[in-house]
Amino acid sequence: MRIAITGSTGLIGTALVRSLRADGHDVVRLVRRAPQAAGEVRWDPEGQQVDTAGLAGCEAVVHLAGAGVAEHRWTAAYKQRIRDSRVHGTRTLATALASMDAPPRVLVSGSAIGYYGDTGDRRTDESGPAGHGFLPEVCVDWEDAARPALDAGIRTVFARTGLVVARSGGAWGRLFPIFRLGLGGRLGDGSQYWSFISLQDHIAALRHLVTTEELSGPVNLTAPEPVTNREVTAVMGHVLHRPTLFTVPAPALRLVLGEFAEDVLGSQRIVPRRLLDSGFGFAHPRIIDAVRAAQQS
């Protein structure tokens, strides 16, 4: 299969490219610079340009590009960058795909469980409503930006991703060094739910979305059983053989992270109902499985 991917140099994109190529698929990487290697195609989200000729023959597109939510303090300028990188990029890509004489059969477009906002201890699946606040609003607009592809008859799936457990990048990648130093601990009172997924399961789930014809619309990419931050802390300490005596009080998080602290302290107990109903099997369903897999990778 010929598959195009945006955001192919990020944590998830790199792993997805590697997985697909290992199985013999033809991967096209959409890049913002001039192409420098075979299999690269130019796109310019800000300029609303995509080299659609380079996408000829692609049966699927996986759209992962977007500014990192946790990489910078949320100034007004960075919040605008988060929103624009997702909304403008998605609209540009969806519009370009819709214009093709022979468009791909499926667009898997990145989204996030931030869509639901703070769900407390309520188990929430894809039928849950959008939450309130910056991230839910971004996710709503982000998904709506793919409408040109949907209207053109392209099967469109929104991969609402949880916290990806990986040692080499992403938000979880920042936890490993802290816990290895014995400085890890719960955040706030630790009662907030974290909806996680191992990197390996995330890649397998994305591939499942590409090939499972009956799936369209939102699909939660999280493990079946979300856990509290307190449980995450205990598992990290157990797997890494380090104490977990420290606690980061909520006021300190707010001081360091600003507005983003409310999302760190918020609770999201999100479950992957549609993924499970479609027959997907998790390699790492428990948090200890996911952390051990990340530690060994």
Rank of each mutant, 00 (worst) to 15 (best):
I3A: 09
I5R: 00
S8H: 12
S8K: 06
H25W: 06
Q36L: 15
A37K: 13
A38N: 15
E40K: 05
P45R: 06
V61C: 02
V62S: 03
G68C: 08
A70S: 15
H72N: 13
Y78C: 00
D84F: 03
G89D: 07
R91Q: 14
A94E: 05
V106M: 00
S111Q: 02
G114M: 09
Y116T: 08
D121L: 02
S127A: 15
S127F: 02
G133F: 02
V140H: 06
R147N: 14
R147W: 07
A152P: 01
A152W: 04
A152I: 13
G153K: 04
G153Q: 08
R155Q: 01
R160H: 11
V164D: 01
L175G: 04
P177V: 10
P177A: 10
I178L: 14
F179I: 10
L181S: 11
Q192P: 01
S195W: 03
S195A: 11
S198G: 14
L199C: 01
I203S: 03
I203A: 02
V210I: 15
T212W: 07
N220Y: 02
T222W: 00
N229W: 05
A234G: 11
G237T: 05
E259N: 02
D263C: 00
R273I: 01
S278K: 07
G281M: 10
